[in-house]
Design a binder for these strands. Structure first.
Length: 289
DNA sequence: CACACAGCCTGCTGGC
DNA sequence: TGCCAGCAGGCTGTGT
């Protein structure tokens, strides 16, 4: 559920609540959260304790906090990860996975994760092929679509070369980053494109239209503080976003399309649900499912 | 190399 | 009421 806009909202919260602070104590509750950290829980704790968070960065759905020794703390929220800045007095929540305390006192920073698809690790920083410095573990993730260095021509070329459906391509984080099931459906609706449209049949102009739609919906969602269906996704200060009220197709099966009035359909695709307007987003002649 | 998908995980919902 | 299947879904690993 956390896609680019939700992760960006969390990044801004970390900027405010974590950056500049010196870590005095790290607690990891349960090893699964740091399963992608090579050295295991004890090594993770040792590498973060005594370090200062110098910045809060994001690429796609990944977050990282550069540390003052050149390494960085990488975080992925998975399905249900949250960072919360709270008083140490507050009783431990269910699904609390990690806690960071600071030299300047409260609030402490907590990482919660119900479904445990998320995780934390300490990583080295490398020069990314696509520009900028990034954690080594996410060097394979493409730039955000709104990044000034995002290569639209290169993206188009890859789509033409591949033989897959356009939604699969949008969800491939090595091609374009930050898009998940919700915003893929929303962008395709805005671009009036069916999710099974063959990527190799797209014209350059259609790809431009689609990328414009992707950026529009992501930026509108960021402005709204992200999409919250329930308490599972909240910002670092605990507030909910309200973009769910702006969703045009996702979760709106049976409701009328705001453009043409046709009933929105939900269809099983890629072992999940896809929502589309059957009139604005016609099934292509040669669909690639 | 390109592509597709099972598996990981927990809590909620709906059917019986 | 209680049980359980189904669903939510990002990413990694693995198979074709």
């Amino acid at each position: 559920m956390p896609e680019l806009p939700e992760v960006e909202t969390v990044r801004r919260g970390l900027q405010k609540w974590a950056v500049g602070r010196l870590v005095t104590r790290v607690e990891v509750l349960g090893p699964r959260t740091v399963r992608r950290h090579r050295g295991g829980p004890a090594d993770f704790v040792a590498r973060v304790t005594g370090r200062r968070f110098e910045d809060a960065c994001r690429r796609g759905k990944y977050l990282w906090l550069p540390l003052d020794d050149g390494s960085c703390l990488v975080a992925h929220l998975g399905m249900s990860g949250q960072f919360l800045a709270v008083s140490p007095e507050l009783a431990d929540q269910p699904h609390l996975r990690a806690r960071f305390s600071f030299t300047d006192g409260p609030p402490e920073l907590r990482f919660l994760d119900q479904r445990t698809f998320g995780g934390l690790l300490v990583d080295e920083t490398v020069q990314g092929e696509q520009g900028g410095t990034v954690p080594a573990s996410i060097a394979h993730i493409a730039l955000d679509p709104m990044d000034p260095n995002f290569d639209r021509g290169g993206f188009y070329a890859v789509l033409r070369r591949r033989r897959t459906g356009i939604k699969r391509a949008l969800l491939d984080q090595s091609l374009i980053s930050g898009i998940g099931n919700i915003y893929a459906d929303e962008a395709l609706w805005r671009a009036r494109m069916h999710y099974a449209r063959g990527s190799d049949t797209l014209r350059r102009q259609e790809v431009e239209r689609l990328l414009d739609a992707v950026i529009d919906v992501l930026q509108a969602a960021i402005a709204a503080g992200g999409t919250s269906f329930d308490a599972l996704y909240v910002a670092v200060n605990g507030e909910s976003g309200w973009f769910d009220r702006s969703l045009e197709v996702y979760g709106r099966e049976g409701e009328p399309c705001s453009r043409c009035g046709a009933a929105i359909r939900r269809e099983a695709f890629m072992n999940r649900s896809s929502y589309r307007c059957p009139r604005c987003q016609r099934t292509p002649r040669q669909p690639r499912w």
